[in-house]
Amino acid sequence: MSALILIELNGSEVNASSRAAITAASQLSDSIDALVLTNDSSNSESVSKLAGINSVKMIVDDALEHANVEVASKLIAEAMSGYKYLVSGSSTYSKNILPRVGALLDVQPISDVCEIKSNNTFVRPLYAGNIMATVESSDEIIIMTVRATAFEHSGDGGSAKVEALSSTIPESNSTFISLQESQSERPELTTAARIVSGGRGLGSKENFALIEQLADKLDAAVGASRAAVDAGFISNDYQVGQTGKVVAPQLYLAVGISGAIQHLAGMKDSQVIVVINNDPDAPMSRMADLVWQTDLFVALKELNEYQI
């Protein structure tokens, strides 16, 4: 009962959520292969070094540079021949492609798996993580995405053989135009060890810079609540929550965030939660390990000036 991992690459690096997918798959199968769709064959190098991978299947074509979903789903469906499981990390990359693969193979995919109970039984969140459901699949093939925060990220140390699949690239009805990459010198939000997150309490885009200043001091990523994003303080790719990014850092420092259900669902598994807020009744405070109840601007000034 072998498993195929759909690997997501960031440049030539393997995405952390793909590493979580390998760990998840190792609980289902002892024969795991990786599938890479790319425009650059030199990308096989980082994939073949992944621990726990038997062999790397590569499809290399210029058309695969920007994950054309119509093309990718057909190629993956073909590559699934002989496999029982298709596992990938819960990223926008996989969420875009995997359900379409499910349609082509007549399989009902399973999203955001957080725990593997048996070879066909899984735990996944519903209602923004307020409900955890244990679900059993009766499909012959199982297709799933797994939460990157729920499984260890498998490391390097392997030396898998690489096999180029000679696939015919199908015609497509969509074309890539451009990618506006979010530029940041800071750690990536979903994999950062520390996150400083700001909410509506910051009051303005200018004030939000205080959050960025503190993040730089702590070598942390910047996060935001949906309220802060909707108010235009910061762009949406910093949003933490069920409809934004789900995070579980060692340290989550929430400033001026009251704690809407959907925000809590996105960060509740953080190891240490610190809340800075002047409202003692904010739902966020109940989740905190440390609470500093004060005017957030007073606290931010003191923190930014403090010599570590």
Binding site: Q108, T134, V135, S137, V274, D289, W292, L303
Partner: peptide, 29 residues
């Protein structure tokens, strides 16, 4: 006919934590 059977659902909610009060940057660090 269902492909996925829901075996059980539980409320996960959010676990309250001990919430120690602090009052300065020095204390926090």
């Amino acid at each position: 006919s269902p492909r996925i059977k829901v075996i059980s659902v539980v409320e996960s909610g959010t676990k309250d934590r001990a919430s120690k009060q602090i009052s300065s940057a020095e204390e926090l660090f």
